[in-house]
Amino acid sequence: MGPLHALSDVHPDPRLGLVPVRDYRKNIHTLTILMYWLGAETAVLERDVHDLAQLDPNLAAKPVCQFLRARGLLVDDPDLHQDADLVWFKAAVDALPQPVASEVRVWVDVLRSQGRREGEFRSWDGIRRYLAYVQPVLSDWTASGVTTLREITQQQVEDAVNGLSGHARRQLAIVLRSLFRSLKQQRLVFRDPARNLPVGDLKGMPRSVPSDLLGGLLDHAATPLGRLTVALVAVHAVSGHGIRTIRTADVDLARGTVEIRRGLLRHTLCLEQFTHRLAAEWLAYRHRRWPASMNPHLLVSQKTALDPDQPAVNIGTLRRVLPKGVTLDGLRLDRILHEANECGDPLKLMRLFGITEKTAMHYVGVAHPEKTSRLLR
């Protein structure tokens, strides 16, 4: 019982960055079963560990595999180490009938910069979010008798978004325009039915977050992760997705900079003293809490720090650091709007927040309508 004895010697002390007692017992239980049936000197197939864990919620797979791998007792299964978003994408597309499934794959090839023209490269997590928005629409179309996306009309595209509003409508419109623009570019459709579909991303006035809610943000964020998240959103207007993609290697405390990844593009944040201090505190806390973590992402949680798949922290973890009534998107927009009120300079907004010229002009127009009311249309 060599491996089991070794693991049982490890005390699940939270200060050491190890698992809680309940998860610790699940690991021991799983190892006990494996060692009983296979012996302590036999290499264990990774697939067998995962299959065993599926039989009972009181069994664990990933931490046990990590433990066995470190001791040379695990035979890795490459299929289990595929990108989780890629696996989800394959399953979602395989559920679609042909040739719609093939057309969606061509669209994704374009998003991955593998089409006829070189474009902005998108990660699998971004593609998953795109497909998640359009998947119900594709299912409805195919269920109604559509056999290929060539048959989709402008009216059908408009009907797909007409029942939605706000963020959901905007995102679906963006995805539909991307889908049909890519298919037209690859010459799989004769016309683009979503070409004139209004996105509505720059319509309306951004709303400020109430000052009474803003005042207690740092008090509400009781952890180093929470305080750094608040600073990145409220001071530097980094989106929730942008925060999740920051890697530890992107942080340069000596120079006081953080690089934000946006596809192939990079936006460099210059940290002021407050955020610099919080970033240093978080890095020190992370190293002390999870010294064995190999996860490259800057922000990690109890669940992701020691996960061998090295996932990004869940967006729900970031949302929970904010009090009720405040959202990551709302806080980010409020920061940009505040800066637009202060300076009225679109170029400064672009440099500070890495936003496009069109978005910067929109915020300046909202904050200072007198500056743009006489511009030529």
Rank of each mutant, 00 (worst) to 15 (best):
L59W: 01
A61D: 03
V64M: 03
V64Q: 01
V64T: 14
Q66G: 15
F67T: 03
L68A: 05
R69W: 06
R69Y: 10
R69Q: 07
A70E: 09
A70H: 01
R71Y: 07
R71A: 13
L73W: 06
L74S: 03
D76N: 11
D76P: 12
D77S: 11
D83F: 03
D83I: 08
A84M: 01
A84E: 08
D85Y: 08
D85L: 00
L86D: 10
V87L: 06
V87I: 12
W88H: 00
W88D: 00
W88E: 09
F89V: 15
K90F: 06
K90V: 13
A91C: 09
A91F: 02
A92Q: 10
V93H: 14
V93M: 11
V93D: 12
V93Y: 08
D94Q: 14
L96Q: 10
P97Y: 00
S102K: 06
S102I: 00
S102G: 13
S102C: 05
E103I: 15
E103R: 14
V104L: 04
V104K: 02
R105M: 10
V106F: 10
W107T: 01
V108H: 06
D109V: 01
L111W: 08
L111V: 09
L111F: 07
R112F: 10
S113W: 00
S113M: 08
S113D: 14
Q114S: 03
G115E: 12
R116T: 14
R116N: 06
R117S: 07
R117E: 05
R117Y: 07
E118Y: 12
E120N: 11
E120I: 09
E120D: 02
F121I: 12
R122E: 04
S123H: 12
S123I: 10
W124A: 06
W124H: 14
W124V: 11
D125Y: 07
G126W: 03
G126N: 12
G126Y: 12
I127T: 13
R129H: 14
Y130K: 09
Y130V: 07
L131P: 05
A132N: 07
Y133W: 07
Y133T: 06
Y133S: 05
